[in-house]
Design a protein around this nucleic acid. Structure first.
Length: 468
RNA sequence: GGCCCCAUGGUCAAGUGGACUAAGACACCGGUCUUUCAAGCCGGUAACCCGGGUUCGAAUCCCGGUGGGGUCACCA
């Protein structure tokens, strides 16, 4: 997202590249999910696997020959060498180093391998990996837009693998080759990659390519301050969507994680964020992800977004819940709009919104058990509800003020408190104890349904409540 | 453990040597409105990690601790 904001805010191009060189972890169809999630969030790219571009292909799995050639260049220049060590040998070395309390570093023993030794290995059919020769003196300096100058001693690095023995590049090699060939000017990524950067700079230099500008942005941590991951605390974009979060809310929230416009504004539109975003204002420290604030932002959007937008966002949820059909008529849409307007201020997610609106569309709701205990128990309630339905039956123009007037009149006649009639009525009409103003509900539901539901509730109470 | 990054309320964050008696937001707690629940409005609790310097003056600069995080793969 910060890449998108930076690129678009500075007249650059935002490029999507799929780094899919780990065939073991390949998931069929995952690409489509990535595209859909990014698009839903409003992050559209200028070049990518689906859209194409002048520097494709944009899937690393389709660029294998390029990496092979680049690795070959380093091999013949003596800047890299084949390594015949087996994974088991390497693991043993690492284990030994760990036991001895040393940093696990590759010994470099294949570096000086004589031609005959190599030939012998090759003859035995051992396929080598390729390692980059890393200088053991001096320093590699990362000039980071956010962290400033970060110095790494080369002696702490080792000859890392750039090509696996199966001929596929490792991440630190492939991304450098691609960044160079795709003319990437800015690499903006999470801080977890900072320690990869000196390695990548070494590759850029070995290959003779210019080093791009780096910016390592703060990580997002789970509430327990651990790294957010698939297995720990992370929620996928698609999950947020299905939980009823609006993309504008997620976009807004994510922008505020690690960045702020510098003043008190928090509710920011996409355009405002695009206009205001600057890497200078990105903080250095990791941010803990707080779903409560996201949810609050979401409620703000549900509450304030234009009617048509709310309709568009809510419709899929209403359809899925079976509240509206695939192609609602004009009258149905009109009704939906009125329902949305009366419940929107109460909902924090589109799922809640749908749930709160259900009784406006279907009659088969159950009465809230706590509400039944509280409002249906008194002996006179069925009679009260019948009187209510009679009073409403008299109302000609079934609007909010007219129905309320009729009810107030009845309340006065009966000499009861307003709540004594209103609460049972709400439960009878909606099955709930909470919701929008009762007369908004009544007017919206319409006379026919109100009368039916009131009578039905009266009957239900008589049949189901223990008689005194 | 080595290397690297970071450090303002529970969380997100303003703050870049004096305007700090340290903004604002979420959450929490009150109040208000109301037939209920929200929303709205008003108010409250709550923070500069510790220790040394530098300076007339430090949340802000320096050093050292401590704490948190990241990373050390033929994963990305």
């Amino acid at each position: 997202m910060f890449n998108f904001l930076f690129a678009r805010g500075n007249g650059g191009r935002f490029i999507l590249r799929l780094e899919d060189t780990d065939f073991e972890r390949h998931v069929e169809g995952a690409d489509e999910g990535i595209f859909a999630s990014l698009k839903w969030l409003g992050l559209d790219w200028d070049e990518g696997p689906d859209t194409g571009g002048d520097y494709g292909p944009y899937r690393q799995s389709e660029r294998l020959e390029i990496y092979r050639q680049e690795a070959e260049r380093l091999l013949s220049a003596g800047l890299a060498y084949p390594c015949y060590c087996t994974p088991q040998e390497l693991a043993a070395e690492r284990e030994e180093a760990r036991k001895a309390g040393r940093a696990p570093r590759y010994s470099g023993r294949c570096c000086g391998l004589a031609a005959e030794a190599r030939a012998a290995k090759e003859a035995k059919g051992v396929r080598p990996a390729v390692r980059l020769k890393v200088p053991q003196t001096g320093q590699t300096v990362v000039e980071d837009l956010i962290r400033g100058t970060v110095v790494f001693e080369n002696a702490t690095l080792d000859d890392f693998i750039i090509m696996k023995s199966n001929g596929v590049p490792t991440y630190n090699f492939a991304c450098v080759v691609d960044d160079a060939m795709m003319k990437i000017t800015h690499v903006i990524r999470a801080e977890e990659h900072l320690s990869n950067t000196p390695k990548q700079i070494l590759v850029f230099r070995a290959l003779g390519y210019p080093v791009p500008v780096f910016a390592h942005v703060p990580m997002i941590l789970a509430p327990d301050r651990a790294k957010l991951s698939k297995r720990h605390g992370a929620t996928g974009v698609e999950e947020f969507r299905s939980q009823g979060y609006m993309p504008e809310a997620l976009f807004n929230y994510l922008a505020l994680l690690g960045w702020s416009p510098g003043d008190e504004r928090e509710l920011l539109s996409r355009d405002e964020i695009l206009r205001e975003f600057s890497l200078d204002a990105v903080s250095k420290h990791a941010a803990v992800y707080d779903v409560q604030k996201l949810t609050w932002l979401n409620s703000q959007y549900i509450n304030t977004v234009p009617q048509a937008r709310l309709m568009e966002a809510a419709l899929p949820f209403f359809r899925a819940a079976g509240l509206v059909g695939e192609a609602p008529s004009a009258a149905e849409e009109e009704y939906l709009v009125r329902v949305l307007e009366t419940v929107r201020s109460r909902a924090r997610t589109l799922v809640e919104l749908t749930d709160m609106a259900a009784y406006f569309f279907r009659d088969d709701f159950a009465y809230d058990p706590k509400g039944v205990q509280k409002f249906f128990k008194s002996p006179g309630v069925p009679e009260l509800l019948r009187r209510g339905s009679e009073a409403l039956a008299e109302v000609e123009s079934f609007g909010v003020t007219e129905t309320e007037a009729a009810y107030r009149k009845l309340i006065a006649e009966l000499g009861v408190s307003g709540g004594a009639l209103i609460h049972p009525t709400r439960l009878a009409l909606t099955g709930r104890t909470v919701g929008p103003g009762l007369f908004d509900v009544i007017a919206l539901l319409g006379k026919k349904r109100c009368l039916e539901r009131l009578r039905r509730a009266a009957d239900w109470i008589e049949q189901n409540m223990p008689q005194e």
